[in-house]
């Protein structure tokens, strides 16, 4: 029975992916892409990976979808270039060959991951009991720090290459009551996700994405006016605080223990929760700014 469900889900994923890739209508394509994200998230729940499922639903499908919808209206549709049938056919053939090769490569070797015994052995020292959080914020915290740096650079880039602002007006009337429900809810859910991330699925990224969803509702409702230098400035400072605090924490740990990102004995949980709390706010602020475009500060 579950196998039938998995089969349907896998077929569904591929089906909506085809729609997302080949639909002529842009909004249909983006819509299909979002549906694909949610179906994939469902499949990852089935695969016992709820942390990534949450992230995919919130960020991969939700926020990316919102970004794509924003741009779908604004981007000029490029005139269709007359591509020769031969090149399309060649690309198709190569892709089929590539798919076969990839499938054979993945299934031909029985993977023996080196990590699970190591994670199991050291989870006790990591300060948290959710293994994914332990990997992200302790065992391989350097990856995560650099990932925050990616968000930082993207933010700088969007500030340097500003997009035109999101105009809240057309939806205003309808969105305000909606935002009244969504915003407090997003704060609650996000806090819950952050707190339970130590022991159960969740963590800074999922919490930040949910909070960003609430923030976007505020922006669309016109309640958060990023044109105002003060609100924009606070949001920007919050976004920058992520890399600043994480980097400072790395320096502090190096000074305290001699190991970069090696938390002092017995205090790992406090450090991790502290870093995650800052990251949640910073990620949320960064994502809102990435969606909203830059806050142009007028130099005096």
């Amino acid at each position: 029975m579950t196998q039938l469900f998995d089969a349907l889900l896998a077929v569904g994923i591929v089906g909506v992916a085809v729609a997302a890739l080949f639909a002529n209508d842009r909004f249909a394509a983006v819509g299909a892409f979002m549906v694909m994200g949610f179906l994939v998230a469902l499949s990852w729940v089935r695969l016992g990976a709820p942390d990534v499922a949450l992230a995919e639903a919130a960020i991969g499908a939700g926020l990316t979808g919102a970004l794509l919808l924003r741009s779908a209206r604004r981007l000029r549709v490029e005139p269709k270039m007359c591509q020769s049938r031969w090149s399309v056919a060649a690309s198709g053939l190569i892709s089929i060959g590539f798919a076969g090769l990839l499938y054979a490569a993945i299934t031909s070797v029985p993977t023996v991951p080196a990590y699970p015994p190591l994670v199991a052995e050291r989870l006790g020292e990591s300060g948290v009991s959710n293994p994914v959080t332990a990997v992200l914020l302790n065992f391989r915290a350097w990856d995560t720090l650099l990932e925050i740096a990616v968000l930082f650079v993207a933010l700088v880039l969007v500030i340097v290459v500003p997009v035109s602002r999101v105009r809240p007006a057309p939806l205003g009337e309808m969105v305000v009551p909606f935002a009244k429900v969504v915003v407090p809810l997003s704060v609650l859910i996000s806090g819950h996700l952050l707190w339970q991330g130590a022991d159960a699925p969740g963590g800074a990224f999922q919490a930040g994405a949910v909070l960003a969803g609430g923030g976007l509702a505020l922006v669309l409702a016109g309640a958060m006016r990023l044109k105002k230098p003060l609100q924009g400035g606070i949001l920007r400072a919050t976004a920058l605080s992520g890399l600043a605090v994480f980097g400072a924490a790395a320096v502090a740990t190096a000074a305290l223990t001699g190991h970069l990102l090696g938390y002092p004995d017995g205090q790992a949980k406090i450090w991790i929760l502290g870093i995650e709390a800052v990251l949640t706010l910073a990620i949320a602020a960064t994502l809102v700014l990435l969606f909203h475009g830059s806050v142009r500060r007028v130099p005096k």
């Binding site: 065992f139 391989r140 350097w142």
Partner: peptide, 11 residues
């Protein structure tokens, strides 16, 4: 070893 976690688990 960053964080004093030896590779391959750590970086």
């Amino acid at each position: 070893d960053l964080g004093d976690w030896p590779a391959p688990l750590g970086i």
